[in-house]
């Protein structure tokens, strides 16, 4: 069976350190296709580090990543990575359309031209996030929520099989947040696998089918109601956790 239907993403024994200080130790997990997974853990737990290590933008000490049965470059081509929004230069002379076009660049290679197909994919992605009317705007002229949608549209235009998103909800208004969740669910329903780094414990159970609980090592991974137990969360968060009477959780500032 496993040869016919390899898992969407399989990570084995991933260890990463900065300056010989380990930030992620021996993380292993396997996600099937069509799953929406939240990556949850306290600050400094190595959530972003794990994503970056999987997409290969960070050097790893050890570990093995397999995407739909492929490794190395072929695996990377199937991944769509949505980095955190902070690093972008909003003054940069590009329009919304220019940015979403970038989603096709990986398929075009160095010298290929955009085909009508590529343009259709881009237009679809832009309308899916509701930015048709702003396509010709320079990205700095958009609101924070709209900016986040631009990058979501770029990710959609990539048409990857596995989506890795680093804190897509940071600095975003409620309308955009629910629009993003909507798009993520559509992706899942069309058979894609989506991993989302998320720091809000209150909304996590509502948004995700599965939770990957992380604090330097893998604490727990599985269906949301199995992972979101008092024991697991306390293990991950220690004293920084507040537990409400109705069963909800939140982190203490």
């Amino acid at each position: 069976m496993s040869d016919v239907n390899p898992p969407a993403l399989s990570v084995r024994d991933l260890t990463v350190s900065y300056d010989s200080e380990p930030v992620l130790e021996g993380v292993s997990f396997t996600v099937g296709t069509g799953r929406l997974v939240g990556v949850v853990g306290p600050n400094g737990a190595g959530k972003s580090t794990m994503i970056k290590a999987i997409v290969g933008t960070l050097p790893v000490d050890s570990g093995d990543v397999e995407v739909l049965g492929e490794r190395g470059k072929k695996a990377l081509r199937k991944i769509t990575y949505v980095p955190q929004r902070g690093s972008v230069d909003w003054d940069f002379p590009v329009t919304v359309l220019d940015v979403v076009n970038q989603g096709r660049y990986g398929h075009l290679g160095l010298l290929g031209r955009m085909t009508a197909d590529d343009r259709r994919v881009v237009a679809d992605a832009i309308s899916k996030v509701g930015l048709q009317d702003l396509a010709r705007r320079q990205i700095g002229e958009l609101s924070g929520g709209q900016q986040q949608r631009v990058f979501l549209a770029r990710a959609l235009a990539q048409r990857g099989d596995v989506y890795l998103m680093d804190e897509p909800f940071v600095g975003v208004d409620a309308a955009t947040e629910s629009a993003i969740v909507e798009v993520l669910r559509e992706l899942r329903d069309s058979g894609r696998t989506v991993l989302v780094v998320h720091h809000d414990l209150a909304t996590a159970p509502e948004y995700f089918d599965s939770i990957l609980l992380l604090n330097k090592e893998l604490i727990a991974f599985g269906d949301t109601h199995d992972v979101f137990t008092r024991d697991h969360l306390q293990h991950a968060y220690g004293g920084r956790l507040a537990i409400f009477e109705d069963g909800g959780f939140a982190t203490l500032a």
């Binding site: 470059k73 990377l76 980095p83 972008v88 940069f92 660049y105 990986g106």
Partner: peptide, 14 residues
């Protein structure tokens, strides 16, 4: 363009 605008993303698409 893409590596100047967003080098992390550029690296992720190869």
């Amino acid at each position: 363009l893409v590596s100047t605008f967003d080098s992390v993303f550029a690296a992720s698409i190869g």
